[in-house]
Structure formats: structure tokens, C-alpha cells
Design a binder for these strands. Structure first.
Lengths: 217, 217, 217, 217
DNA sequence: TATGAATGAGATTTCATTCAT
DNA sequence: CATGAATGAAATCTCATTCAT
């Protein structure tokens, strides 16, 4: 069957190759720039870094929100892919959780949490699929660890995701400071605590992914 | 005769009472606004909130940096005071650490960590006194807990301060989300881990306050 | 001899059917959009409304001016056709004038007067034929009424055309206001005055179509 | 009694002289530019013409709407003043109406009708006073003429205002065309018709000022 | 001294027009 | 020939900082 004229006469013209490439370059540049400058980064800087005119950026993403959406989506997908891969490869349930956490930190998930938090907005049903995929993968990892008795029972996947994001967030203007070094250290410290038996009753209730989902602006 | 007009023509005018009050109001307003808007808050908004003209703000603080300095100094002092008070009042070394951490989170120390990180800038010797006072107080608390065997020995005061700041940072635009709830929960989770025996070797070396001091932009 | 494939290699390709249809759709869409948005309407909106790509629009009309020309030409032709038809059908000379005026108002001739005024530009000899046809038709109507003593003798066809355009121009952003209602009312009021005997000497001299012709930018 | 500390301790600092002067210059420049360019005139052009920086314009008028409001208010006041003065000076009721109409045309009331139509917006209660003043003055003139039997009884003040605005509107881009000449001519033609006895029943009902008031975007 | 006002530099966004598929 | 994409120039608006009262 031909890939093109499948269904009725509708015109769904396949996106042009160069446009796709540009779109990709914009999202990549945006992720870098967001990590570097924060979410307030000037769009012109993103366009410059992507090597395109600023108006081209607006053709692909009608406003700054749409670009953030795209970056969030891409980050979610990458994180989900890693979670799924690790679930397949790593036999030890807690080690799997740890590997995922450190990899996600390397993915700059914390630097992008400004945007990620938007991604959990219930008003963005267009991110639903990606969100559910990521949630499912992370919940799979935590559930497995919990069943194996390797995770404090009062801790949820949402707790992990939020702490992970916060601990790996760059300090604003922390030019020369290598946050990565701190992030991995503190993440491991935190993970160690997750495996140890509970010592105190935690204040508040567990943070579920549903909580994060309700959190958006 | 006022205390000012000591020698002949020299002018060492004691700051007027209203000027002092204005200065105070500006710093208070700035702290609120920074917590609310982030460090990019428009200076006019701060002036408005303080109930003064914008030019008055510039008379007291020649540029945006000077104002941040003042806010940082005030936050440092408040945190140091609490640390010192708790050290006096709380007999249990680990409980003292915990109480300090939660109180500091309530002080929005995380919301202000953008500015705090500036405060550790080596180029601001005018913050030296306050910084040393805060460092001393927190190191006192951690040292006491460590000696009592209630703190993982591979953890430093700087680790605590940094994690504390990160975990209590508000999510950007987290409108309806009550970060306080999460902050205290995750802080406690982290503190529980600090008390438990080490389960893994932490990556990187301990974060000392000296490290943070070197981190500034 | 066929008109097309006359000599050897010359290319005088008869316009393709679809190209003609596209051209027609563009002009129709442009007229609608101009009435709706004014002459500043984005060309992309016109292309969208016509259901074609924007570059196609440029193929047919090299610049915004050319498109306006085409719309003006089409409006002129429609108005001329009506004037000619009414001249044939309506025995009463003044009633003919009135019917033409009200019909032209319904044609949105006022909404398009921005462009019509361009149409009288002497620099557009390509509109000459259409302009002369419209002028001829309207002058025929006024001349007949004047000869029958039903029209103030100091009034010219150009006066009528200009007043007609002005009175039926939509107010900018007059969202809910039904200009049609006002236009027809005030047009009739004006026409009543045209039939009545002169009460005062009019300032200025009569507006001839030649005047309008010289008016363009 | 001092002019300042009249009532309680409220601070209503008298606007500075230079600011007032600037405000005045902006409004004047805006009126000119609107007449010339239409309501879409670039704000930078207005600022340039007023001889101030563009940001100063924004200090006085937070957005383009606020500036239009100010221009509308000023035009309304000038027109009302003229109507009142003429009512006092001109003994002949119909001549008074005519003088007002021609003067208002000279005031470029038609060129500004884009903005005037906004001025009749019911959502701008801040224009209420000026609007009522103008309405009152014009209704006074028409009522007097009607009572004297010098005005078609089926015509209202609103009809006059609207026709007056439309007939004196400049053609878009009518660079070299002297609209003033046409405006006065056609206005007089229309006014002649208003004094003559009715020849036909007008379509629609009279346009009251209330109608215009309801017309806004 | 305190203040409202002024300002230029920069950010976001739109649009007519050109380019490449 | 038709089209989506690209683009620079311009318009609106914001804000840190300086100026004048």
C-alpha cells in the first residue's frame, strides 16, 4: 500500500524535510538555551543558536508557550525511553531506580523542571500521551522496588520525580559552579535514604504524579 | 547640638530616621517580591510595594545588585539567629538540625537561593561577617550531630544548606501548588537519610560551604 | 489559424483552467477580507480564505497593489453592470439614480472605497476600460435625471459617487453597528436633497469624475 | 487656605508642569498623526512628532487605547465648545446648525471618527461627561432648528453627527486630494436637504445619539 | 533628600515578500 | 505551476537606570 494516498482525498501534505530539520534544531537549541539561561531566555537567542531567523521560530511555534511544550515533550520522551530501557536491562529493582534517577539528572531534567512543571498541566491534553508514558515507566520502577521491599513504603513515584527535579536544578547564574557534581551526590544521598527503613513519619502525604499533574500554573 | 556637626566643614550626617525606615521597608518589600516574582522582579514593583518612589530606591541602592545584597544579608542574619537559638534550646543534636532545616524552609530560604548563591560570591567581602556567622551556626549544628553519631560522617554543612535550598525552591509558576507541603515532606525524607548509616559511597566529595562560596556568577 | 499554437517555439500558453479558477477565488476572497478587515488585511488571511498557498497569491498578483487593482476592477464592473441594467429597466430618471445608489451601497462600494480611490489613479491605465465604463453608466443616469429637471443642476456624477462611497463606509471596528441601516437612510436623505431645488450656493465646484481620477496616492 | 493641604492627609501630588506639557504635546501630535495616517499610526511616529521618547508615551498612556481615548476626549470637548459658542452667537437656528457642521468638519472630526466611534462605547464611562456635553450641545442646536420648522422633522442629532463624520472622512491614502473641498461641498448639499421639506419616507428609523452610543466595538 | 518623569535598549510578535521543494 | 517555509524589517510594549523638580 502506498504511504501517501491511503485514505480519502484529504490533504495532509507530508512536512518538508528541511522544515522538519529546522524544527528539530529549534527544539534542541531551545533545550540548551533553557538549561543555560532559564525559561526566560530570549527567543532571539534560541533562533540565533539554531541558526535560523527569528520569524522562522514563530512559524513553528506560535508563541513562547508552544516552544516550551515541545521541549517538555522531548524531555519526557527521552526520560521515558531511558526508564523503559533500564527496566528491561537492570535486574536489581533498587539499582534500576537509582540508574534512572542519575540518568534523568544528566538529562538536565531539573534544569528543565520549570517547563516540566508546565507539562503536568491538565490543560495540555496534547501532552497526555507523553506524560502517561513517563508516569507509567517511573511508576513501574518504583512499584517494583517497593514490592521487593527496597523502597520506603510511604514514598511515591511523584516524590521521586519532584525531588529529582529539584536536586538537579541549576542555581540561577551559577556560572562556574558544576551543579552536576552536587546533583549526583545529593541524589545518591537521597536515594540511600529511600532504601533505608523509615525513621520518622513524613509530614504531608505522599506526592503522587496526580499531584504534580494538578500543580501547573 | 547634633552629634553630626563635630568638626568644621565635614559632613558626616547621621542617617535620618525616615531614611532608615525607608531602607528597611525597601528590603522587606524586596524579599517579598523576590519570593513572589523571582529575581527578575521589576524594581518599580518593589518600590511600589514599599510605598516609595523608584528613584528613592536608587538613592539607597545604587543598582539592582546592591539591593540583592541587602536582602541576602537580611536572610542570612535571620537564618543565623534561628540556628543559634535552636542550638541553645534543643538538647537533641539531630532534632536541632531538623528544626533548623524546617524553619529555614519556612523562611523561604529556597525561594531566595538565587540571591543567596550570589551572597556566597567571593567578590562581596561586605557580606563576609554575615556569611561567617551563618556558616558558623550551621557548622555548629552539624558538627554536634556528627559527633553524637547522628549524622552520616560523609556529609557536610554545605550539603545540608544546598539541599535545603533546592528542596524548598518554588517551582516556577507553580500557581496553586503548595510547595511548602512538598518541601517539608522531602526535607524530612532527606533528613531521615542523613541520620541513617551510609548505604553507598557518595559520588563527588562533600560540599563545603567554601564550595558554595566559590559558586557565584 | 488557431490563436494558440501559431508559430514554432513561442510559448503563449493559454492559462490553465485551475489557474483561472484560483485567480477568481483570490479576488473573491480578497473582496470579502477587505470589507471585513480593511485594506490592511494580511495577505496570508486572503490566501487562507481562498484556500490556496500564499505563494500562489504572489504568482497571480506580484504585489499587494496588483491584488487591489483586481478587486477594484471587479467592483467597478459589477457596479457598471447594475447601472446599465437599471438605465434599461427603470423609466423614472430620478428613481433610477436612487436605485443605483442603494444597490451600490449594498455592493459594499463604500467599504471598498479605499481601493476604489486607488482605482481612479491615472497611473493605472490598465483600469481605464473599466473606469470609463462605470463613469459612462453613472453619467448616463445623472445626465438623464438632470435633463428631466430632477437633479440639482450644480451636482455632478462625481459628487454622487463620492458621497455614496463615504456614506456607506463602515465605521472602523463598528462591530455590532448595522451600518447598512444608516447608509441607506442617509443616502436617501441625501438623494432627497439632490432632487429638491437648490437652497444655497455650494462651496467649491462640482466634483467630476476627473477629480476623483486625480485623487489617488 | 493653602492650595495643597486642603483635605485629609491623602497624597494627590499635583502633576508636574513638564509632564503636563508633555501630555499635551502627545495628544496634539496624536491627533495630527491620526488624521494623517489613520488610527493604525505607529506610536513611535507619534512620539517622534511630539519630540519625546517612545517610552514616555507609554508612561502617559499605558496602551494605544488610552491614547485614543485622550484624543477622543479632546476632540469632543473642542466640538462641544464650538457648538455652545455658536448657540450663543448665531440667532438663526438653521444657520447655527450649518456653522457648527462646517466648523466640526474643519476640526477633522471625520478623520477622527474611527476614534470617535470608540468614544461612544458604553464601556468607557470615563468619557461620559464629555460625551454628554457634546450630545447636549448638538441636540440643543438641532432641537432649536426643528422647533423653528427649519429641519426635516424625521432627522435627529445623531443623523447629523454621523453624516458629518462620514462626509468629512479622508479617503485612505488620498495624498494630494483636498478632502476639505469635497467635505464642505457635500456637507452643504446635505444640509440643504435637511432644511427642505421631506420628499420621501426615509428607510430605517432616525439615528439617535443613543444608537451611536451602542455602536462601539 | 525624595520623587515622578524621561529614556534608550531590548524583548515579543506580525507581515509582506522571497526561496526552495 | 503550486506550495510551505524562511526571513528581515517594523511595531508594540517593558524595564533598568538617569534626570529634573
Amino acid at each position: 500500500m502506498g504511504c501517501a494516498a491511503g485514505s480519502a482525498g484529504r490533504r495532509v501534505p507530508r512536512p518538508r524535510a528541511d522544515a522538519l530539520r529546522n524544527r528539530e534544531r529549534i527544539v534542541t537549541a531551545a533545550r540548551e538555551v533553557y538549561v543555560e539561561y532559564g525559561a526566560e531566555a530570549p527567543l532571539d537567542e534560541i533562533a540565533r543558536r539554531a541558526g535560523i531567523g527569528n520569524a522562522t521560530l514563530y512559524r513553528h511555534f506560535p508563541d513562547r508557550h508552544a516552544l516550551v511544550d515541545a521541549v517538555v515533550r522531548s524531555v519526557m520522551v527521552r526520560a521515558a525511553e531511558q526508564a523503559e530501557r533500564i527496566a528491561d536491562e537492570e535486574p536489581d529493582p533498587f539499582a534500576a531506580l537509582c540508574r534512572f534517577a542519575h540518568l534523568a539528572a544528566d538529562e538536565r531534567i531539573g534544569a528543565l523542571c520549570a517547563m516540566l512543571s508546565c507539562g503536568f498541566d491538565r490543560n495540555r491534553p496534547d501532552l497526555d500521551a507523553e506524560r502517561r508514558r513517563l508516569e507509567g515507566a517511573v511508576e513501574g520502577l518504583t512499584e517494583r522496588a517497593r514490592r521487593a521491599g527496597r523502597l520506603r513504603p510511604d514514598v511515591e513515584a511523584g516524590d521521586l520525580m519532584l525531588v529529582l527535579s529539584q536536586l538537579s536544578r541549576p542555581l540561577p547564574d551559577s556560572g562556574s559552579l558544576d551543579m552536576g557534581r552536587f546533583a549526583h551526590r545529593h541524589l545518591q544521598l537521597f536515594l540511600d535514604g529511600l532504601e533505608a527503613p523509615a525513621r520518622s513519619e513524613l509530614p504531608g502525604s505522599a506526592v503522587t504524579l496526580e499531584d504534580l499533574r494538578r500543580a501547573a500554573p
